[in-house]
Write a protein that binds this DNA or RNA. Structure first.
Length: 326
DNA sequence: CGTTTTTGACCAGCGC
DNA sequence: GCGCTGGTCAAAAACG
């Protein structure tokens, strides 16, 4: 990170009082010390000076962290806009390319192979889960990437590509969804508007929380799979990994279909949906709406994060080791 | 009774 | 070849 973006930001009232309250409480009032303890005054003075210096340093650090967080949010917003623009451009380019080569082409690249297999069920396909609107303070971020990139885009999981098989690469896209769930809710259920049937659960090596495996139960032919696991870092965050695309329209909004209770978290989908050729025009028409939605979401996420004392603590601990103390 | 969840067993890929 | 690990299967249990 360069310094400029940090210094450009000046005020953000986050209440990041890093260590300040305890320092204050630990130090007796200066005047009292000076009056009552003459013989120790010089020693106490030193302590007070040290504490004041520490206080100033912590205050400065507090301000710096606030600035960094603000800049981070601003940069995130900016990058999100750029990424969506690039994805739209790339999709448009792919659209043109596939249109020019899809008929009668013999030298099929891997990506074209996938596109062809996808085309079998392209009609009526819904590219990404129609995630339900979030409740207040609940958010999720989804990243749509190619399968081999997917493992590296997660903040919560280490890059681990050894399990990426050839047929996985050939398979359809992978997207990740981060859902802020109630910590007291132990279920691994992410409400995303589709019906899922759990077919397995496993405890993985890198995370003590079990990982649940789901298949789409709405359409038997639908090959979409979903893995849900709590983040190892933050147990309140559910990480849902979607593997593939639904080949059917989303089910009508169910109020607990089948009568079964559906626990879990409300989510909010942030990412641009993976756009297929046939849906490209529709997508472009709604790009303006999506940009506006993303802006709102970024603001909502920032508000959520800044309200969360746990996030502040984690941010402070994460950054404290990286900021050189004078 | 049909559907979903649970859970131990099984399988395949990978590293040593 | 062996052990480890992630993913899937399938029978039994649970649920509405």
């Amino acid at each position: 990170m360069d310094e400029q973006w940090m210094t450009g930001q000046t005020s953000l009232s986050l209440g990041l009082n890093v260590g300040r309250p305890t320092a204050r409480r630990g130090a007796p009032p200066v005047t009292k010390v000076l009056v009552e303890e003459d013989f120790m005054s010089s020693k106490k003075n030193h302590e007070v000076e040290a504490l004041e210096a520490e206080l100033r340093r912590v205050g400065e650090e507090n301000r710096m962290l606030s600035d960094m967080l603000r800049a981070l949010v601003a940069k995130y917003s900016d990058l999100q806009g750029k990424v969506s623009g690039m994805m739209a451009a790339a999709a448009a380019a792919n659209n043109q390319q596939s249109l020019s080569t899809s008929e009668g082409g013999s030298a099929a690249s891997p990506s074209r192979k996938r596109a062809r297999s996808d085309s079998l069920d392209t009609a009526g396909r819904n590219p990404s889960p129609p995630l339900a609107a979030a409740g207040s303070g609940v958010f999720a971020v989804s990243v749509n990437v190619s399968p081999d990139q997917a493992e590296c885009t997660s903040v919560h999981e280490p890059c681990d590509s050894k399990r990426v098989r050839a047929d996985d690469v050939k398979a359809s896209r992978v997207s990740k969804l981060y859902v802020h769930a109630d910590p007291s809710d132990l279920s691994l259920v992410v409400k995303d508007g589709y019906q899922w049937r759990k077919y397995g659960q496993k405890v993985t090596k890198d995370n003590p929380c079990p990982r649940a495996y789901f298949r789409c139960s709405f359409a038997p032919s639908c090959q979409v799979k979903k893995k849900v696991q709590r983040s190892a870092d933050d147990k309140t965050v559910l990480v849902a990994t979607y593997d593939g695309d639904h080949n059917h329209a989303p089910p009508p909004k169910q109020q607990g279909s089948g009568g079964r209770k559906r626990g879990g978290a409300a989510v909010l989908h942030v990412s641009p949906a993976p756009v297929l050729v046939q849906e490209q025009r529709k997508h472009e028409a709604s790009t303006a709406d999506q940009v506006a939605d993303r802006k709102n979401l970024v603001e909502q996420m920032a508000a959520t994060l800044t309200r969360d004392p746990g996030f502040k603590a984690a941010l402070v601990s994460a950054l404290s080791g990286r900021i050189p103390v004078a």
